[in-house]
Design a protein around this nucleic acid. Sequence first.
DNA 1: CTACCTCAGGTCAACGATTACCTACCTGAA
DNA 2: TTCAGGTAGGTAATCGTTGACCTGAGGTAG
Lengths: 339, 339
Amino acid sequence: MTRRTVRLSDVADAAGTSAKTVSRVVNGDHRVSMETRKRVQDEVDRLGYRVDLMARSLRKGVDDTVGVVVPTIGDPFFATMVEEIEGIALEQNLEVFIARGSRSLGIEQRVIERMLARRVAGLIIAPFMADFTFLANRNTPVVFLDRHASGLDSDVVLVDDFAESKKVVHHLASYGHTRIALIVDNLGVETSRKRRDGYLAAHRELGLPIDESLEFRECINAEVAEARTWEILALPETPTAIFSTRAETSLGVVRAQHHGNRTDIAMVSFGDFEAADILTPAITVLDHNPRILARIAMERLVVLMRGDEMCVPSETIVPLHLIERGSGEITPSTVAVSA
Amino acid sequence: MTRRTVRLSDVADAAGTSAKTVSRVVNGDHRVSMETRKRVQDEVDRLGYRVDLMARSLRKGVDDTVGVVVPTIGDPFFATMVEEIEGIALEQNLEVFIARGSRSLGIEQRVIERMLARRVAGLIIAPFMADFTFLANRNTPVVFLDRHASGLDSDVVLVDDFAESKKVVHHLASYGHTRIALIVDNLGVETSRKRRDGYLAAHRELGLPIDESLEFRECINAEVAEARTWEILALPETPTAIFSTRAETSLGVVRAQHHGNRTDIAMVSFGDFEAADILTPAITVLDHNPRILARIAMERLVVLMRGDEMCVPSETIVPLHLIERGSGEITPSTVAVSA
DNA sequence: CTACCTCAGGTCAACGATTACCTACCTGAA
DNA sequence: TTCAGGTAGGTAATCGTTGACCTGAGGTAG
């Protein structure tokens, strides 16, 4: 019952030809006569032959696979990226390896090393925190997504976190806000740092006072963001607006606002999230669309993998739109005076 | 600059031993003296040698990879499953292939065939609609997740859709509801069919009248569910409760309820979703937790892959809890009389 | 002193497909 | 008639690693 794998030579024996000819038929090489082709094809079907991609890849030196490394897979932002990448990969007949890069220190390098050991044809990496110098002497094409990577000069597709964040603060300021709380992740993360820098720069441009007590760092997930928001709500002088720099943390902010009955405080989220439009008020967001980023990155990777020419690393910046839904257009006058 | 791959024999030459000995060192075989081991290890480090997993897998006959096929990757439910699977895979030193099974007919079989051609060590499949007889004569371990698969008797991890749905209807009925609308996907999908069957069975058990006009099929996504909910709200005799049989459609239902100012209608969702707890009212849900399902499936697969014994296919049913948050505990008396 | 065992290490082939390089044979132009 | 060139197909080597099997040295028990 344990039927041994059918291989090229088995088909060749059955069809009375050489393995090479079967290989030609299977790979659509034209140097085979019609009749031979048919005879071989019949045997292929009858025996249920399928190429062994391991063997092929060993011979060819590369595998038709791309490795995708994201900080977390469950996060809808990255999950959507992966979905988009997988779609393009399928069109290109590429298989997708997936791995999570956050979790613990060094894990990112470890999963990437494993993918390289597999001879993946290319890598798409949404970096977490690691240094990527270890990738320097490899000649596997890499495209970074969402963030720059340190230690390796490679292609990158991202958004202008600094400018976009400034945009948000300017937007809130245009509605009269001067006390804007900032919910931000660990500043070791490039995107977080730049978003905060944009927040600060906008304050300077607008001549607004910078109140460090309104800056809440280390909001690594929704829970922490929720806790910080409770602290915000308890401040003697409540800010009139909150800028949450990640979609995930926005959920925590909104949760606290709702449970604390403080939806009168303006709120803007860097990144859209499900349900953002059905809340009351609906949440104003910077539409940080993962599909577009992923598509550009993957298309770039495909070009690099074809390797027609050794192009210089390019940086693609995707502009974002602010979707005004209500929460970002609340004016400070409506904010209840705290006790 | 294009440094050729360092292989076992290169290290062997440098260390003055045979390739086999290097292999032994690399694989931690004990039949090597301390000094030889050290000498080899030094050369491995110096030359930057890394195993070629393609070659190893070709030789061994299986690859240390598992293939994961889910209907959609972006859906938080499946994304979370994948994340959980990837976590366990990393512990077990397995690599994860990911592919989407919905999209178009036959795609599911195609992506699975490709994974088999790669000699994956095992497969975890959350089936879409395909028939799986083509997997019957392969001897790759398979665990189905979330749904039974037709055409193949294999391990499966799922929830009792029928009983859980009955539970929901009984819950709503205990609050006095007799007119409960059903939002359900295509009935060709096993889970959808069973959930509907449970809905109907509960009606019979309770002696409630079954009104077919309250059953809304083909709610394949949030948008359709939202549209159907608008229809529900426009019915001459509005139902007093809605049972949404998928988390994704629940979002559409809630969206319509909120935009239509009809949050007075009770609502229960089969499956939790982000923001379900911060809406007003918060949504009562059957906690269909993807992590638990994924973990059980993966643990099962690992056992099968070790292949110590050819166990008979088992079916694991994970019981669900109803999280009462408010929307499912609204009584019919509070529902506004429609115009 | 022989028989047997363990240890450290080596040889060789094979995993399955492909690439580089041949071999016939046939055609057509010089 | 002969030679260049194309077509259909074959042969052997190779990709990098490992499993099966072998060897020689030294130890030990009888």
